[in-house]
């Protein structure tokens, strides 16, 4: 299930700032993602975002994912670490609302505040990414909610963001089905 994410740029509020393809120079990449904390060991992940993907470093020797991106697998000390596309699906593990913070386009710290979530990805236990969430409509997001990635764009830079998941697991384990069987 390691397909690339289908981005919905046509529905993005910032389509006029549609990012260039990921053949940016290193300097251009750093400029586009200024303030994101781009460095040599996570540059591939940011290039992946420009291609609409969520890339997580995975060890080619032991198959373990790790976060944040590191040049060596902490599990087996292999340097054969591959930025690997993941589904972008997971559940909200941590959630807060910021009522103050660095100024950013489209970010409102007033009223309910700006949501920040840490989402645990379906690929591996405790494997998480941090981002924000799109509107959940008329309900409040909460810990445990199923979500999926949908980048939002700020000044042309894709920002990790999640929306409520519409994905149905292929092997459902719903208690109601078990009780009927």
């Amino acid at each position: 299930m390691a397909d690339s994410i289908q981005t919905e740029r046509d529905n993005s509020p910032d389509t006029e700032h549609k990012p260039a393809e990921s053949d940016l120079s290193d300097a251009e990449l750093l400029e586009l993602f200024a303030g994101h904390g781009v460095y040599r060991d996570n540059a591939a992940q940011y290039r992946g975002r420009l291609a609409g993907q969520l890339l997580i470093n995975r060890c080619a020797d032991c198959d373990r994912y790790h976060q944040p991106p590191r040049p060596m697998c902490p599990s087996c000390w292999s340097f054969d670490v591959v930025p690997t596309p993941v589904s972008g699906r997971g559940t909200i593990h941590l959630l807060m609302h910021l009522h103050a913070g660095p100024p950013a386009d489209g970010v409102d710290y007033q009223n309910e505040g700006h949501p920040v979530v840490v989402v645990e990805l379906e690929e591996q236990d405790h494997l998480r990414v941090t981002g924000t969430i799109h509107s959940f409509g008329n309900r409040e997001p909460s810990i445990g909610d199923a979500v999926e990635l949908e980048y939002l764009y700020r000044g042309g830079a894709p920002i990790v963001a999640f929306r409520p998941s519409t994905y149905q697991p292929s092997q459902p384990s719903q208690p109601s089905q078990r009780s009927e069987s």
């Binding site: 941590l94 807060m96 660095p102 950013a104 920040v116 920002i159 990790v160």
Partner: peptide, 18 residues
């Protein structure tokens, strides 16, 4: 300017308090 979507340092304690 750092981006707001950050769960490190001080922000971490709000997320884990939740």
């Amino acid at each position: 300017r750092p981006i707001p979507e950050d769960a490190a340092n001080a922000n971490a304690y709000a997320t884990w308090a939740g």
